[in-house]
Design a protein around this nucleic acid. Structure first.
Lengths: 237, 237
DNA sequence: TAAATAGTGTCTCTAAGACATTATTTG
DNA sequence: CAAATAATGTCTTAGAGACACTATTTA
């Protein structure tokens, strides 16, 4: 390159953070990691969204960086991943002007247990209540988490997102229960089934789930990659 | 602070870019600026989304930066503004690893004419066709613009976003026309009016628009700040 | 009066909501 | 048989689509 026209440009710190959700035991949960307790780190000991600095040597792009952190911090390989947005300001990190690129992931509860090894010595699933969790979060992560929860609740009204928190095979009752947990309200069974089947969201698999009652048909997602969009929300609120 | 734990962290360049839309003359248009033709700048002479580097001295946060650029480059004061997302990679800027925070704005066609002065010697409204414009764009701006158009078209199906491109007072026919331009398809008049009035989106103002035909009632947005969300999309596609 | 656009009414159809009913298993 | 959950059916209602019709101005 000719000269160095960017010498005077101050560059903010750049990070990627992840809001990783799942549904277990009738609760929406988010994965948090505990920050190191050493005093030279900001917010020592506080819980935070998993994430970290963009590595300009290893990461070809932001999504790549998000996938890398998902794997490193949570041992998760192929989730539903979408970008949530970015937050940047002079004040959010005591080390200086910083901007974080936030991602939003949904993982199956049957997914690999957390590897407590590696960079995340302590990672835990926290139940979501309202638009936050019960612990105080580092940085502006409470705000980012609130935005992630809001995005999730909104999209659940008209997409198949909750299906991504289920194992590969599931019953319609389980799917409905997952929707209800995320939405925080009951849905009408018959309307739910009609909608799901009409949208061609799932396809029945030969197997049957047995129990002390009438057995249930098991289903798989017709397209395990892309979400389905409905033309209406669940209830006209 | 104790020491300098971030000395080894390479920081990407940070920019903010804007996709500013309006509707004029029955066309959806986006504001583009021409890059300087000097050879030491990347993509000399090409058209690009207005934007530029985050100024860590002046910008307290990203939204502030976006509003500043909106004012500097387009002379626009109070538009509808939402974040679109961020794009970052090693390759998008020849000057090195860079990340841009993209915003999405809707402005009134009656809004202040473009100030060709200042930082944007040449700024022009380009009609959108399909998911792009007729000229080649700098950086990865074609991709960002496509995402912005897609977001707009999607949201128009179930929100009041098009209303933000109208002057303060407008008729229902004008509002419908704006929807049709953005969506690229005709809407049914009676259903459109029922929906808009049922959603309490607008409130009639005393005035009447006259012409060589039956005069039309004029309306204003009930809340000129926040968009309204409908429970259904316009047509079940 | 015709032309032009504003605004309303009617009829049908789709899908959601409420709720009852039937179906199929185990113990 | 009862208990339990799966799955379907019926009736009502809200709102979109299609399309015809009425209303109010100017020229």
């Amino acid at each position: 390159m000719a000269k160095q026209p960017l010498a005077g440009i101050a560059r903010p710190l750049a990070t990627v953070d992840l809001a990783i959700f799942t549904v277990t035991d009738d609760a929406l949960r988010v994965l948090l990691v505990q920050r190191p307790a050493t005093a030279d780190e900001p917010f020592p000991g506080l819980w935070a969204l998993p994430g970290g600095f963009v590595d300009t040597e290893r990461d070809v792009d932001l999504e790549h960086c998000a996938l890398r952190k998902l794997k490193e911090k949570a041992g998760i390989e192929s989730p539903y991943l979408e970008q949530l947005g970015s937050w940047g300001s002079a004040k959010r990190d005591p080390r200086g002007w910083s901007a974080t690129h936030a991602y939003f992931a949904l993982v199956s509860r049957g997914a690999p247990a957390l590897k407590p090894g590696g960079n995340a010595p302590d990672a835990r699933w926290f139940p979501v209540s309202g638009s936050s969790v019960a612990v105080r979060l580092a940085f502006d992560h409470a705000q980012i988490l609130a935005a992630a929860i809001s995005r999730l609740r909104n999209k659940v009204e008209y997409t198949s997102l909750p299906a991504f928190t289920l194992p590969r095979e599931f019953t319609l009752t389980e799917l409905q229960r997952t929707y209800e947990v995320v939405l925080g309200r009951a849905l009408e069974k018959s309307a739910f089934r009609t909608r799901v089947l009409a949208a061609d969201l799932v396809r029945p698999v030969g197997r049957i789930r047995r129990g002390p009652n009438r057995p249930a048909q098991m289903y798989r997602l017709r397209n395990p990659r892309a979400p389905v969009f409905f033309a209406r929300t669940f209830s006209p609120r």
